[in-house]
Write a protein that binds this DNA or RNA. Sequence first.
DNA 1: TTCGACACAAATAT
DNA 2: GATATTTGTGTCGA
Length: 612
Amino acid sequence: MNIEEKWSIQQQPQVPPSPHHPPPVMSPQMNSMPTDNFMQPFSYDGQTAHQQIFVSMPPQTSSAARQANSPNNNANINTSNPNTDRKVMDSRPAFTTTFHATPFQTGAARKRRTDVLGFAQDAGPFFSPTQQHYNIYSMDRSLSYKLRINSKVDRGFFLADNDWTCYRRNYFQISSAFSISGATHNINEADIPCLIEVDGQFHAINQFLLGITARVSNSDKKIELVQHTPKRDKGPQMVPVPKAIRAGGNLSLSSVGSNSNIVTFERIQFKTATANNGKRRAAQQYYVVMVDLYAQTESGEYRIATSTSAPLVVRGRSPGHYADNHDRYNPMGMNPAFPNDRHMGFPHPQGPNGAPMMPPDFNGAPFPGPYSQYQPFSGYPPVNGGPIRNDALLMMGSNGQPPQFHPQHPHQQYMVQGVTDGDNPNQEMYSNANMDPSIVNSSHDPKLHEMHMDGVTSTSGPHSAFSNFESRQIPTSVAGSNSTPGSKPFMKIEIPQSSELPEHPLTSPAYHSQEYVEGFHMYNNGNHANNASAHHGGYHSDSEQHNMNGRPTRPDGSLDHNHSPQLKADKSEHNSKLSANKNITTPTTELGKNLSQLNMNYRMSKMEDDKL
DNA sequence: TTCGACACAAATAT
DNA sequence: GATATTTGTGTCGA
């Protein structure tokens, strides 16, 4: 069974037959979507998507399109389009190299890249659910499609002071995929024919592109991202350009030679650091990374969907600088057993008073302030999460209620942006305590469509999973306001430390795709462009991931298929992933072992509690 | 305070 | 085990 067959979905219509079609009618959600809460028309460098035409990228025609379309292959990037004057129109090759899953830093001391401390390798900032900007239809306009972008940060970030943090000079990596639901077609069909509606006109989508950008949180100010080669300073620096992508990708299932539906941006750095990092008396600035899905049509390219990361802190100075200022950065206290843990990113045991509580009025309501002009961030667990994300789900509880945590088991707190719980009765959590994870992976199983309303349902109102918010006072003159551009609505959620109930659908890694989580938390006041809620995700081990999006090049930029570091990189990447995966279960350092033991103790303790 | 550049060294792959 | 590659980060000057 090849990959396409394995992941094929006998997709059932997610949108029931509607009197609106044919001809199609703009979904009410789209029509009623407030413009100030909607990032359209798309503007990139001052041009709207309606006029802007991106680089024309060739359609992918083979299962090896990922490689063929490697940014290293200049021939695959057509820069002849006269309209391609945007800044990211950089045809210089991108490079890939060995995959080092190193999500956590260990402080000023050089860390071991494979020492994962018993926690997930690729924990990273959460991404919001997908915000769809245009209605997408089947070719006969009888079906409305829903787009979902799944993204994960593979490396580079760690939790510091409950902020997802990275160093400007360090690499991070983002992998993304997207799915189209509501289609009757096989979700992994090479090219699902569909139409985009733009100003009442319908255009056939030739292909999809996926790109990443960054901007200041609460602001339109763009932040440059730079992509390096393995040669780093000796090689060219480029801006990550959108890459062609096909629907149906699963971030946890990327097989050799079949990565055309997953895009990975490697060796990405922020051009600049966030302002006021660690300053006690200045408002911390935050960035967000936006993963944008574009539709290429004959009439141009449109940004059709966006997923936004959690607020990010980008440190501009060396870790040693921050390590010397623990007190300034750790107002909530840290585990004294691990004085460097603020760089480690693993859950910090914290007491219940780690941060001031969010006023109850905010529970389940859109966070006040200008952040609402962007997509409300729901703090979703990302796709391929480890314990952290397990627990983010666990907090839901199997009955949709916030779980009752044992007071002796402190919880990690995560900061999320303002949350719009919405009030959509269709909000749902894919929950079925007896659901076999294999069913999820075999997403063609029609059972999936029956599970949506099982178990946990709505999260709106006081029962929201994210009702346990806490606020953090902004220690400046803007305290009490979240309107400062670049600031983050300081909302925190409590998340227990580790994964329990590995077979539970809320905690098993098998259920961590955004597509599984997304249902319980709708954006835009609970309204998607449509309410189709197919889910095609799944979970496979990291060792199944193979990033082959780099091609070897000679110094002159030509391809070198024989003596290429890239080939080594590709191979080493695989080995690295295998090694990294192994290290998840067998930490090699004393610290790793200790943490692993702590994690195990916690799990066992929690299980005992559950029994009681 | 940030950023760019250089350099060193650790981690990892071959 | 040796060597090469990749990457984290310390330092310094602008």
